[in-house]
Design a protein around this nucleic acid. Sequence first.
DNA 1: AAAATCATATCATATGACAATATGAGTGTC
DNA 2: GACACTCATATTGTCATATGATATGATTTT
Lengths: 252, 252
Amino acid sequence: MKKGPLETLITGVDTRTSHSQVVDVLGRAIISGEFPVGTILPGDQDLAMRFKVSRTVLREAMKTLAAKGLIVPRARIGTRVTARNQWNLFDSDILTWHFHNGIDEDFLTHISEVRMAFEPHAAALAAIHATDAEISHMMRLAVAMGDPAHTPESLAVADLRFHLAVAEASANPFMRSVGSLIEAALVGIFKLSSPAADREGIEDVSRNHIRIVEQISRRDEAGARAAMEVVIRVGRARVRVAMDDVPETAAG
Amino acid sequence: MKKGPLETLITGVDTRTSHSQVVDVLGRAIISGEFPVGTILPGDQDLAMRFKVSRTVLREAMKTLAAKGLIVPRARIGTRVTARNQWNLFDSDILTWHFHNGIDEDFLTHISEVRMAFEPHAAALAAIHATDAEISHMMRLAVAMGDPAHTPESLAVADLRFHLAVAEASANPFMRSVGSLIEAALVGIFKLSSPAADREGIEDVSRNHIRIVEQISRRDEAGARAAMEVVIRVGRARVRVAMDDVPETAAG
DNA sequence: AAAATCATATCATATGACAATATGAGTGTC
DNA sequence: GACACTCATATTGTCATATGATATGATTTT
């Protein structure tokens, strides 16, 4: 299985190639604004020396970043950091880098908005297209979220699996591509505050997710859409509460 | 201004670097299934010879493709084509390559579904956040779409500009990132059939778009959402008619 | 002052070599 | 015969260096 940021976050293992290390450091530096938008990066040789790698490796790293839309190289001019609105925000690396510089509430809000636009639609599509096997799979995942033994990490993983399964069942490949976005949102929320803190929270989460599968199983598009909206709204509320530093009173 | 696929399609100019040519050819070959999912690509040296480029260039091209999620290299094993659901479908290159192998109705349908999930939400957000300057800008663009002198190409460009402006006005950076998707959809629709064929079509399109701006201007979220849905539905219907040669019956 | 020219800095490409890595065959042991 | 270990091997990963292509800005010419 693919090793996403969630697992990396948990395992903490980081035995990677020198190429990807350069990509990571440079990517984070750009996202964080250490190399501001519109400015020219230091030259190839300079950067190669800083990272203690050959120019070959550095250039391959630059191509990787360029492919994600972060930079644009031009002969004689240098390599320029592109405007933010040209970055491919659906790239999982870029999302991960965003969260590496502390949690940004605005950013989480934007992600919630996107999920609010996307996932209810995906749930509705799943109500049309999901196979019986997919439905029982989703149900198993939703039920598994209720395990009281969940740690915050394992709950986040279970949560992610469920939402990816819904995206898959929608039979629209674009919905599945939003998976990295969902993952980023869950990592962010998880870092802030986890519903695994109290048992009630876990039960609530599981119940809400089961409701989604029930609606999909009934082939009720509107119902599935509404049930998914509830789940996302709860997650967003949790973010708000955690950021405002206000004790959690009532969840949406 | 950025040179998107639309302009490339129109100008037909293709004076690019050898790196990007390799990327394009390889990318298209992968998307089209010439190198099927799960298989191993030929080795570096082999490919370098085929493309008549140095291994340096070839490897940089591979890194570009890997950054988009198309391939995964592993030492000693080779470079494997990843499963489709790991491709970043929101990448504008990948979208362009998809359309390079003829028009795929399913694919256009999926894009329409995504737009249906996204853009109405963006319009609603624009109704909340758009500045006066943005509103008048959008209105100018919507009116400009009614120019009876439009060629199919110029109409497609005007169409794209409008939808990007709405995304921008939503004040959510993710909405803007969907721009490449919108562009791909418009290219696809434009290749199939253009409303610029008849004058009535142009007037209709313009009127529908103006209505969106009016709702945004009134700060009416639901109204803006509905108006945008109409526009997307019309586009989707045009696709269906062009492909099936069957009149539209009912839209979801 | 305006236009053409040229030196220069930067990315783009090429070449050849060596290192790291994971497979699968081969070897040895029980 | 089954299992564990070793090792040759093929492929990607990294390195060092050299040359070409290109756009800028200073210089020269008109």
